[in-house]
């Protein structure tokens, strides 16, 4: 019984040690684990030009403008505090919509415009049939953007 006890404590101790080590490591790396930066991050940290990073937030309502050539798109990414203009020449994912989450990869140009080379749509956790979404919007209970 004592040997079993000892093995039990050994395993528990090992797991606790491992947990603490992992937590410390993840905490140290937390900046690198961030997949994207918000417009507020960008405003606060003053990202230099020509540094590639990912910018994430919501596509601002009524900000999407299709260029005359039919390829280019410009829109603004907002986190409701700050917003950054984004220019992108490429095909947009199916979930790209005004008011929806989006992550763009690219760099800031001299005018502070984000030149995106890739645009990914971010989905939220809500799943519902179209009729339910319409009903929620009509009744004013819509929690989305």
């Amino acid at each position: 019984m004592t040997r079993k006890r000892r093995r039990l404590y050994l395993v528990l101790f090992g797991m606790a040690l491992l947990g603490v080590a992992t937590a410390l490591m993840l905490n140290a790396f937390s900046d690198n684990l961030v997949f994207f930066h918000s417009p507020t991050d960008v405003a606060a940290k003053s990202f230099e030009q020509d540094r590639r990073f990912r910018l994430g937030g919501l596509v601002e309502e009524d900000s999407v403008i299709k260029a005359d050539d039919g390829i280019g798109t410009s829109f603004r990414i907002t986190d409701n505090d700050n917003a950054i203009k984004v220019v992108f020449n490429g095909s947009l994912p199916d979930l790209f919509r005004e008011g929806q989450g989006v992550v763009a990869e690219g760099k800031l140009d001299a005018n502070g415009v984000f030149q995106a080379s890739e645009v990914l749509a971010k989905h939220d956790e809500n799943y519902m049939p179209p009729e339910v979404a319409d009903a929620l919007k009509k009744s004013g209970n819509w929690k989305g953007e």
């Binding site: 994207f36 939220d124 956790e125 799943y127």
Partner: peptide, 14 residues
């Protein structure tokens, strides 16, 4: 929940 991810947060177990 801990980091900004492209993957959406939990829908069922929240």
């Amino acid at each position: 929940d801990w980091w900004n991810t492209l993957h959406q947060p939990a829908s069922v177990m929240k």
